[in-house]
Computed example of a mutant assay.
Amino acid sequence: MTALGFLYPGHSAEDDYPRIEQLLGSDIRVDLVHTDIGEDAHRVDALLRMGAPERLEAGVEQLRLAGAEAVVWACTSGSFVYGWEGAREQVQNLATTAGLPASSTSFAFVHAVSELGLRRVAVAATYPEDVAALFSEFLRAGGVEVTAVRGAGIITAAEVGTWGEAEVLELARAADTPDAQAVLLPDTALHTAAHIPTLEKDLGKPVLTANQVTVWEALRLADRRVNAPALGTLFSREPLVQV
């Protein structure tokens, strides 16, 4: 049994995680600890507070006692808002506190794009445009070319959590460009685990979503590879897209 630990801010789309655990269909256990979200707002100042060390550290002991082999800060905006170096320091501090390999959803996206051999992506973000632009800057710092960015302008994670497949698909279509090799949906407050096959079929290319890449990143840290086609191209045995 491989136990994976996740620090998830508040309550929005946390039910994606047991769904993903089920879809993995293997000896994988997903342990989720909720962190204090503070003010629910996709604003830079609120996001910086949400990702502060003391808020992440508060849940680490519970994951360690559960036997987690790796821990991932399951929040994109609460990591990329610090910039590349700041986000790196954030996960280094988390690893030191936990005594475990650690990462965040922001780095998970960069690593997943690399895993699939991609270079150019479109970003379909629920965030306001200024926050979505910070995610694009983070991707570029990681060597990923961003062909287009679409921000939906939603302020709260609570509202994002109410979206269904139709809204997710509409946003992904709006962001996609012909030269993008994949479409990225970066918000962990967005329910996507059940929609990935539909998204990939509709767009005709890989789709990477926040909760999907977060679990994949934890598996990577734990040195596990799981074939789960229901979770999309990223969880197929071989990358389906080559540069």
Rank of each mutant, 00 (worst) to 15 (best):
M50K: 12
F235H: 12
A157C: 14
A124S: 15
V71C: 02
A180Y: 00
V215L: 06
L171N: 12
D223C: 09
S79L: 09
V110M: 02
I20P: 04
G59K: 06
V30I: 15
L190I: 01
F107E: 08
A74R: 05
C75V: 06
Y82C: 07
A180H: 03
T76I: 08
P229Q: 06
W216M: 12
L7I: 13
A74P: 07
S106P: 07
A108N: 03
A133E: 14
L199H: 05
G151E: 08
H34E: 12
V30F: 01
V243L: 14
A102G: 08
L56E: 12
G99R: 04
A193R: 02
L116E: 02
H195P: 03
A141R: 11
F6W: 00
V183R: 08
A210C: 11
L240S: 15
P239I: 12
E115D: 14
A218P: 06
V207K: 10
D130T: 08
T209L: 09
L32W: 00
G161L: 12
L221I: 11
D130N: 14
E145P: 01
S103R: 06
S12Q: 07
S104P: 07
S79G: 12
T96K: 11
H195V: 12
A210M: 10
R43H: 11
T147I: 06
R19Q: 13
L219H: 05
D45M: 03
P18Y: 10
Q212K: 06
L219Q: 08
L203Y: 01
S79C: 07
V121I: 11
A157G: 14
G164A: 10
P18K: 11
V113E: 03
T105E: 06
G142I: 05
A95E: 13
Y17R: 06
D16C: 12
S104R: 03
T192E: 10
W84P: 04
R55A: 14
A52M: 01
L7W: 00
S103G: 15
V183S: 13
I154K: 01
D31Y: 02
M50C: 14
K201S: 15
H11P: 01
E14Y: 09
V146N: 10
Y8S: 09
D179T: 13
V123G: 09
D40V: 06
T198F: 03
G153Q: 10
I37N: 08
E61R: 10
D130F: 02
A172F: 02
H34Q: 13
W163G: 03
V207Y: 07
I154D: 03
G38C: 12
V81M: 06
R237H: 07
Q62F: 01
V226P: 01
E170K: 11
F107M: 10
N93I: 02
R237F: 04
Q212P: 09
D179M: 05
A108R: 00
V33Y: 02
R225L: 08
P128G: 12
T188V: 13
V71N: 02
D31K: 05
E61M: 04
E217G: 04
T76P: 08
L171T: 11
G5W: 00
F6R: 04
A95K: 00
E85D: 15
F6K: 03
I155Q: 13
L184F: 04
A210W: 02
L203M: 09
A108T: 04
D40R: 02
R49T: 11
D36K: 04
V81P: 01
A152Q: 14
P197N: 08
P186W: 08
G59T: 09
A210H: 05
L171Y: 00
E57G: 05
E165Y: 07
T76Q: 07
G10K: 05
E39P: 04
M50H: 01
V72R: 03
